[in-house]
Write a protein that binds this DNA or RNA. Structure first.
Lengths: 255, 255
DNA sequence: TAGTGGTCTAGACCACCTG
DNA sequence: AGGTGGTCTAGACCACTAC
């Protein structure tokens, strides 16, 4: 069954104790998650939505405000409110934190080094994805190149159940970023991620990928990428050569 | 002159093209920065403020909403709206990102290892603080201990002009976190920070502090802490032993 | 010109906290 | 009981975009 046509029905008043704007937010999220309003598409206008939900425009705006703050919706004055897409811009500012020491940022060039379908044997990855060891997964390795230098080695694990039909060909021939592929080809929108970083001596595999001597200190970042409802969809181990480039982090949003 | 009494006067309508709620936000920020409403104190009620500014309550709330999102104000239902303070809680969740691999977080025990007043000679630190090389600064070293293990070596540089009268005694005898000291003793509120991380071989100094063999891979995090208006107030180099502990980072706020 | 989101108003009632 | 912030309404006008 293809995605159902959007259906914004009146909000059930029996929602116990929950403020109306929360109910409206949940209803909007549900329609977005279900694919009834695909990424890039415009929602009905605020007036129409408020009427459909049986609430005032101000209350609806409160709900939309929160979804905009979470980068799930994007408002464009005079045009409408749109479901967010994974453009290269968003990827760069929200999910890619490596830049040159002088602050230069660019979209990395990606090379697919290996690709295989197999069964999950790493227990840490299994638990971060909420899977049992032995679950079918795709695993592949990428080399990310910035300013002509290999800087990041990514080892990525995806639950096979969520990415049916993924192949090295589709990965190689994708037009944009990996998260754009997840979204456009598999209907999976990454909305959030958690990362844990360590400094480790570079192992032989990453040393070859990055052109380093084994044992060189590198940053190892374990990322779990999450979709709506904090459901994990990707486990990634990034090995970063921080000679010329650095891992950047701003604590609290810029005003 | 001690901090002026709070003066919330009508918003100048000649503020060119700026929305009223932005003007209100600036006016609130100005009163907070100037110390007219010290950290921990309550603002006048929304009704009073709106009346003083000559705007409606809804518009005032819009301004306050943004300051709450930036952790500059805190709302407490039934009590009032307060200027944020640097409690240990806030420090832990906003500025301290080291936790044990299993997720255990705790407030670190801090030991002051050295303290001196001198002149700035590091050019990178000078530029991050917006100072000229040779400017007078305080520099000191801390060891942070978690679960009985030395985990972080901090090297901190403060502009002497902003921290007049700082001494090793006052640092050692402070009751709470360092940022609480900045706020309560020097009127400096850290609202934001930028960090750049690298993996490096541990140098001799940090190796001694952390009880490691020199050359062990460690994370080196350079932080610039900022106050209102993005003015830099602290430069810090943290050297982190990521054997048992990790550096944690969540991309985008939890819903 | 018509439709969208952006700003703003002037109320209302509720939930919570303090006295 | 009285004051606070939290929610909600039903309008208004403006700025921007598309056609």
């Amino acid at each position: 069954m293809p995605p159902a046509k959007p259906a914004f029905s009146a909000i059930a008043p029996e929602a116990g104790g929950m403020p109306l704007y929360r109910s409206a937010k949940r209803a909007l999220l549900q329609q977005i998650e279900s694919g009834a309003v695909p990424p890039g598409e415009a929602l009905p206008s605020e007036a129409v939505l408020a009427c459909a939900f049986g609430i005032s425009v101000g209350t609806l705006r409160h709900a939309v405000d929160e979804l905009v703050a979470e980068h799930i919706l994007v408002r464009r004055q005079g045009r409408g409110t749109f479901v967010a897409t994974h453009g290269a811009d968003r990827f760069l500012f929200q999910f890619f934190h490596v830049e040159r020491s002088d602050g230069l940022r660019e979209v990395p060039a990606v090379e697919l080094l290996s690709f295989e379908r197999g069964r999950l044997d790493d227990e840490a990855i299994a638990s971060s994805l909420g899977l049992k060891p032995g679950a079918p997964v795709f695993q592949f390795n990428n080399r990310l190149v910035l300013q002509g230098r290999p800087v990041v080695h990514d080892h990525i694990t995806l639950p096979a159940a969520l990415f049916k039909g993924l192949s090295d060909k589709r990965l190689r021939e994708r037009p944009g970023t990996i998260y754009q592929l997840y979204q456009s080809e598999f209907g999976i929108t990454v909305v959030r991620a958690q990362e844990r970083a360590r400094a480790v001596p570079c192992d032989r595999g990453s040393a070859r990928v990055l052109g380093l001597a084994p044992g060189t200190p590198v940053m190892q970042v374990q990322r779990t990428a999450l979709t709506f409802g904090d459901r994990p969809v990707e486990a990634r181990v990034s090995t970063i050569h921080t000679g010329v480039h650095e891992y950047v982090h701003t604590l609290q949003r810029p005003a």
